[in-house]
């Protein structure tokens, strides 16, 4: 589980679902030299509005500037730094791994431990679907490396706070982190 000292921050933005919005957002990141570790976009619960989740690398002041500069974009309606709240973050990955008769059952055991699924079986490979936070997906990928990872496709992290509102204190935050760990 990542700690609060992690240089990665998760930011979500509610944006207008118009042509070019993704370009405006990514152009701002590029121009200001901010690093995006991952970016995921999809429809929100409101018609004509999309929600973007960014995982941004940088210190506190960088993340503050990212948030402010996102706010400045006319098509961006709301920005939240969810990593300072207590949130659930998930990523979906598809991993194709080399598998033969000897290794298949071992791989399946690992898949079971991670509560991942095998979604395609070929004579010399398996495709695994895994959902979890970034660390979980990383861990699985690492464990599979020795078998020969042929292809990896990751969606990027999406995140949502646990619905306790914005007024939470830091104390609440640490206990929720704990909850998240146990929920894995």
């Amino acid at each position: 589980m990542t700690t609060t000292e992690s240089p990665k921050h998760t930011i979500t933005a509610l944006v207008e679902d118009k042509p070019g919005v993704l370009n405006r957002v990514s152009s701002m990141f590029r121009r200001r030299g901010y690093n995006i570790a991952s970016l995921a976009v999809g429809h929100s619960e409101i018609a004509n509005l999309s929600r973007m989740t960014f995982v941004v690398e940088g210190d506190e002041s960088t993340v503050e500037q990212v948030t402010k500069n996102l706010h400045k974009l006319v098509d961006v309606i709301k920005v939240s730094d969810v990593s300072i709240q207590n949130c659930v973050s998930r990523e979906l990955a598809l991993v194709r791994v080399r598998a033969n008769v000897q290794t298949r059952s071992e791989i399946m055991q690992i898949v079971d431990i991670f509560r991942a699924n095998i979604v395609d079986v070929a004579p010399d490979s398996l495709m695994i679907e895994v959902t979890g936070d970034e660390d979980k997906v990383d861990s699985l990928q690492n464990l599979l490396r020795s078998f020969g990872v042929l292809e990896v496709m990751r969606t990027g992290t999406i995140a949502m706070d646990r619905g306790l509102g914005d007024e939470q204190t830091d104390k609440d935050n640490s206990s929720s982190t704990h909850r998240m760990e146990s929920g894995l």
């Binding site: 042509p19 070019g20 370009n23 405006r24 152009s27 701002m28 121009r31 006319v74």
Partner: peptide, 14 residues
């Protein structure tokens, strides 16, 4: 031109 002026306008429209 909307692409070109994206980083140098406050906002732009096509």
């Amino acid at each position: 031109i909307t692409g070109i002026t994206l980083p140098i306008t406050k906002h732009n429209y096509l």
